[in-house]
Amino acid sequence: MSLLLSSRKWKDLSLLFPICLFLGIFFLIPLVILLIKSVTVPSFGLGNFYELLATSTYIKILGNTFLVATLVTVFAVLLGFPLAWCITLFPKGWGRFLLNVVLLSMWTSLLARTYSWLVLLQSSGVLNKILMGIGLIDQPLELVHNLSGVIIGMTYIMIPFVVLPLQASMSTIDPMVLQAASICGASARSVFFKIFIPLCKPGIFSGALMVFVMSLGYYVTPALLGGVSNMMLPEFIVQQIQNFLNWGVASASASILIAVTLVIFYIYLKVQSDSPTSSNKGS
């Protein structure tokens, strides 16, 4: 019996062979070589880490990074949920149209969409002109080169990454389950919160996680739509690598980001009842 189990285990592990080989050679080895520079460049020791943590600047940048990622994740889920729901609900007409809009937005170049937002949001931009035209505001709003610019631009880009996994998990939910609950006398509200949302949780979880970690490392959109006072970590790293060739500090800050993210991930795994891998049906 134990022999059987272990051969089963080997079979499972052999499925992981391609990914381990690929990521090992092309990702982990080069990454480790680079990250080692955080303690060897310019001289051996923890000097780079002292330099980063001694000033409040780096902590603020790290804080900004997580703040933006959190806000973007929340907004993307809030806006993505009704879309995914409608796409599942009306697969032919309206839902089909919504799905096409989502796909169309994903297919449009990221750089182009970001630039489009820049022109839309700036104080002499279209949005401000319209708002002033209809008399809602008399002074142009500052929508870009600050936190709101980054949040609008990034939420926009992340919505499809919530909608698609969420819709995929919604479409596997058996409508009869909800029907049954309602027949048993549950109100629409409690069916929604007690049954529908929990069933959607894996989809929300994977979408939100994807958006959150993507946002942490995002460079292009914050660099174009953000202001410098809410600089995020990737931009700081670019500055270190590009302007000052300071790979030591750059790798040190990347190591800290990776460590902090993994800790958060770990806590999340402990708190969250669903694990990201194990099935919530059966086992």
Binding site: E51, T55, T57, F244
Partner: peptide
Amino acid sequence: QAISSQWNSWLL
């Protein structure tokens, strides 16, 4: 390099 760290802390 030294100026940039002061610059960043001023910005933030």
